[in-house]
Design a protein around this nucleic acid. Structure first.
Lengths: 105, 105
DNA sequence: TGTGCATATAAGCAAATTCTTATATACTGA
DNA sequence: TCAGTATATAAGAATTTGCTTATATGCACA
């Protein structure tokens, strides 16, 4: 992988919120409203983070009626590196628990 | 490793110049004047990048008369992750060649 | 068709980032 | 001790980032 392009990926992962998002997406797909609950962050803020990931081809979206679920894009040239990086971090179960009572359905 | 602290490392690596520096330091120690030649970048700019790496404990320095050589800090808690990341990138031999005629000595 | 919820996007702002130039410090060797 | 080289640091400017608030779009369901 090119240094130039790799640096872009690493910069995207180099943000607390986005890194957590990735780690969560590693274990299950999520929609925006879940992230707003998990991170106690405004909906536009979450959408803007996701936009960056989508623009870089790191995540894919699939609409399920009102909701849009985001997943890690396993086809991305960055996916192997992403996996390696994520393996160094603990699962974000705690964060997920925080949002259990607010899960959208 | 904590997400919070990991994001700091990834942000530091998420810069084209610093990522190249890391990759070069993986194969050999370097001093500031070499980096200025390799990257065709001003000396203060290089020093400021290195300062960030040093502050995060990612590199160590050792003075050799006039020159200060920087090395990857193998004792850093981040070192295993750094290694994993760097393994995805090609060696920076080309950049090193560019500076061969300018090596300081 | 109209209302409500989920999401996207735009515009604006404050803070962070990355340079620049200027200057200070540390070492070497005549 | 002085001149030259290597490096660090400070201050300032331009750019980028990550939020905010306001508004638009898309879908579901009565």
């Amino acid at each position: 992988m090119e240094i130039e392009r790799g640096a872009v990926l690493l910069k995207l992962l180099g943000d607390r919120t986005r890194l957590s998002m990735f780690k969560i997406l590693e274990s299950r797909d999520c929609c925006v409203c879940e992230f707003t609950a998990i991170f106690e962050m405004s909906q536009p803020a979450v959408s803007q983070h996701i936009r960056k990931l989508k623009d870089a081809g790191l995540v894919t979206e699939s609409r399920k009626s009102q909701w849009i679920y985001y997943s890690l894009n396993k086809e991305s040239e960055f996916y192997p590196l992403m996996q390696d990086i994520l393996s160094h971090f603990p699962s974000q179960e705690e964060n997920l628990k925080n949002s259990l009572q607010i899960t959208c359905d």
